[in-house]
Structure formats: structure tokens, C-alpha cells
Design a protein around this nucleic acid. Structure first.
Lengths: 247, 247
DNA sequence: CGGAGGCTTGAATCCTCTCAATGTGCGTGG
DNA sequence: CCACGCACATTGAGAGGATTCAAGCCTCCG
């Protein structure tokens, strides 16, 4: 982790990254036009992580939370056999590290180069008063509710047994998120590689490859290159995602 | 839903149910000895649901939250094909219906006869002041954090491909919960039937049956009857649950 | 231009799912 | 008190899809 700078009077404007679009930390994908958590900036440090670096580890002390400015973060667990199943992908604008325990139950690592605000809990507790406290609680609640929703959608994806269906569900969520943020219509950038997708939808990279091929053969998607996919048949994707072949 | 009574000056003491033990609504399995949310009782109605009745439906208005006094509640989603995958089981002491949206994203229905406190959001908003508001936020945060943790554990269970492993994971969580509440050591009561378990671990009732048989044959568990199981080899169960055959 | 890593494809094996039928337990009614 | 019936639970057989191991291909970067 690299501490790039301490915030001065104003939040610095992040330079526009290309694939993952920068967004103000607001805790939600739906509302970049939040009242603004200016008070949060008082205790924020801007930090940078290289791809693969850990923001925090499994069972590490929960001494800070983060707001992603640019980049992609993977939430994962480390299993006794060395597997690292991915439980969530987080992007610009997302908050992570929120808990009510003294230790994180999962690990977070940078899926790409990541810049983020870091909010040490100690400083947060000290600096929160009155209105700020109220807004903070609102923010936390929104963040946690979103985490619950996303975890449940993830569970619904994982229930499916056919890899194509799971992949379709995954793409649907990525698409919904991108469109919710005013992104380009049907063009999707995949910030993660095949094995990350596999670790998220609970299958092997080979199965992901085959599922992509199937979707492409069915005319549901079309690849520009390995990381850029265009949804050519949204209804077909939705049908697959909705559970044509659920368990 | 049946409104049994409006709370008077004190929270009524629920008569001791046998299989599912009654617990004060405290929002967590770990802390029945919470400071007590006495102020919550001001707006609470005690309601009763028969087995199968819905506490709230998919996409219904989020106009109240509940605290379970006795019984078991299933959180599920209704899929277009009629399937009703179960996302969570909730028991005495659990809070449900917490959200930051105007509508629930999932449905909740009684898995057994259920008595619960019902807290209409309108009344909650009106009656929360100062200290109560602070405690309320704490309660909400704890509840949501727990939901996130449980949803993630659920996802980890769903990742596994062998039915025995998934069932072991499910039993482990049930056991941890029971023991966390000071329950009998290694005897487990299953408040749900086989198809509910199947709907939760993402498989068919037949597979659940076969997985149970396998666990029994391996000497990991032993059935007294269909609903009472004794963990005869906790280490073996943990080994299976931890991922002997993960994906 | 060369190498390394990621991605894709191929073939054999295993497991689960589905469809059916049988067995068990509980509640009801006679 | 006993017998019946319904719902749940278990068991069986066949087919389909996924996982695994292994090898070849492509792309990107140095």
C-alpha cells in the first residue's frame, strides 16, 4: 500500500481512468449525486495498491474502511486447501471493510491498480459529530444493505448448475451495474480475467471458456477481444440469467 | 397474520417452546444479554403466523420489520419457473425486514408457527429519539453485518459441488448457531423438512437424503428420528464442511 | 523476435439430476 | 384401539453435464 497524499481542504479530483470509470465515493451505484460526505474527507488518506496487493487480509484487524476511487477490488476468502473463492467484485464508488466486528471475516485484494480513500476507524469515531454521525449511519446502512442484496444475488447465481446460466447471471449483474452508472449501452469491459470469473461463479476457467463460447455461438454475446464483450441479445441473456435451467 | 396483543408496559414472556428455544429479541445469536431495546417495545405488536404464511412477499412494501420470538422463518425468492430457493433460515431472536429500500427484495414466510414482534417503520421513525436512535442504528448495523456474513457463508456452501459437503456445511452452521446459544451440545433439531434443506443448499430432496445417508454411514451423524440428529464425529463434519472436495 | 502467461480445446470419468416406485411416520376417522 | 390415508422420506436406474487432466493456441510484453 502506498500513501499517495493526505487530503487537504478538498477532495482531489481523480484523473479519468479508462475502463473503470471514476466515481465519487457515495456508497451506491445508483446515486453518484449524493449530498456528499464532505466530513469523511477530514480523515481520509488517499492510498494506492498495485494489482494483487491486499487491502486487508482474512481475519485481519478491522481498523479502517475504504472507498474505491479507481480500479477493481476482489473480496475473497482463503480456504484451507489454498483455493481463493471470490465473493464479490467492487468498483469505483464502492465502500468496503464495513463491519461490526473487530476483525474482517474476508480478505480484500486489488484486482487491478487501485486508488482509494482510507478511513481509519479511530479517526472516524473521533471526528463524527451530530449531522455527520447521522449521515454516516445512513451511508453504512446503505452500504450494508447493498452488500446483502449482492450476496443474495450471488447465491442465486451459485445455485445454478449449468455454467452458461451462471455466466449469464454474472454478465447480467455486470451489465446492470454498468448501465446503472450511465455506462455505454451494451458494451461491457471485463476488468477480471477468466480465472477470476471462474472463482466468482464457482467453476473452473475451462468451464468459463466453454460457457463464453456457447453464449457467443448462441448469438447472445460477441467478443471484440478477450476483455470487451458486446451483448448482442439482451433478452436472450436475461432469459438465461433468469433461470432457463435452474436447479 | 394474527395480531395477538399490543405490548403493555413490559415485553411479555413467551412460554417456552420445545424444539426452537425462545430468546429475547436482541438481533444477534451471540448476545442474548444485550442492553435491551426496551424502547422498541413502544411500537411493537405481537403477531402470529401459521406455518406457510407469508410475513412479507417478494417486492412487497417494506413497511415494517420483525423480531422473531418463537418459530422459524424462511427467506426466499420466487423464481419465474415457480422454484422458491431459500436464502436464509431465521430463528428466535433474529431481526428481519431491514432494508434501505421502499420494497423488500425477497419474501419471508413462516417455516413453522411463528410469533414475532412487528415494528411498523412509520411508528419507528416517529418514536426514535436521541439515545434510542443511537441504539437503533447499532442494532440495525449488527443485524445487517450478520446478514452479510451469513449470506457469504451460504455462498461458500453453494460453491461446493458434492451434496455431502454442502450438507455438512449446512449442519455445521446450524450446530454453531445452536451451540452459540448455549444449546445442547451435539444434538441438533432440524426445524425444516428435507425439501427445505434442499432448497437452501441448492440441490434436490433426493440428494439431501442420499447425503444424509452417506454422513450416517461414515459415522459422522446419527439419527434419532427424521428431525433429530446427533453429531457423532464433529471433526469429521468440520473436515467435510471445510472443503474436502471443493470446487 | 522470443518467451511466458493466459486462454481455449479435447477426451475420459465421476457425480448429480430427473423420473419413478417403494417405504415410513403421523394424524384422522371409524 | 385399530386401520386407513396422506405427506414426507428414502431408494433405484438412466442420462446428461461438469470436473479433471493434458495439450495446443493465442496474445501481450519484454
Amino acid at each position: 500500500m502506498t500513501v499517495t497524499q493526505a487530503p487537504l481542504k478538498r477532495r482531489p479530483r481523480p484523473e479519468g481512468g479508462r475502463p473503470p470509470p471514476p466515481v465519487w465515493p457515495g456508497g451506491g451505484s445508483a446515486s453518484p449525486s449524493r449530498p456528499g460526505w464532505r466530513w469523511l474527507a477530514q480523515v481520509a488518506l488517499v492510498v494506492r495498491f498495485e494489482k494483487g496487493e491486499e487491502l486487508y487480509g482474512d481475519d485481519s484487524r478491522a481498523d479502517a474502511m475504504f472507498a474505491i476511487i479507481t480500479g477493481m477490488v476482489k473480496i475473497h476468502k482463503v480456504l484451507p486447501d489454498g483455493k481463493r473463492p471470490i465473493l464479490a467484485f467492487l468498483f469505483a464508488g464502492d465502500l468496503l471493510g464495513v463491519t461490526d466486528q473487530t476483525t474482517h471475516a474476508v480478505a480484500a485484494s486489488a484486482g487491478s491498480a487501485v486508488t482509494a480513500y482510507r478511513y481509519p476507524s479511530v479517526l472516524l469515531e473521533r471526528s463524527l459529530h451530530q449531522d455527520a454521525f447521522l449521515e454516516f449511519n445512513l451511508l453504512i446502512r446503505q452500504t450494508l444493505c447493498r452488500e446483502v442484496r449482492e450476496a443474495r444475488e450471488h447465491a442465486l447465481i451459485l445455485r445454478r448448475l449449468d455454467a452458461a446460466g451462471r455466466l449469464a447471471g454474472f454478465l447480467s449483474r455486470l451489465l446492470a451495474r454498468a448501465q446503472g452508472m450511465g455506462e455505454g449501452d451494451w458494451d461491457l469491459y471485463l476488468p477480471m480475467d477468466r480465472s477470476d470469473i471462474a472463482a466468482y461463479i464457482g467453476t473452473s476457467p475451462e468451464a468459463v471458456s466453454r460457457a463464453f463460447r456457447r453464449l457467443a455461438d448462441d448469438g447472445v454475446v460477441r467478443f471484440r477481444d478477450r476483455r470487451h464483450v458486446r451483448i448482442t441479445n439482451p433478452d436472450g441473456l436475461a432469459a438465461l440469467a433468469a433461470g432457463k435451467t435452474p436447479r
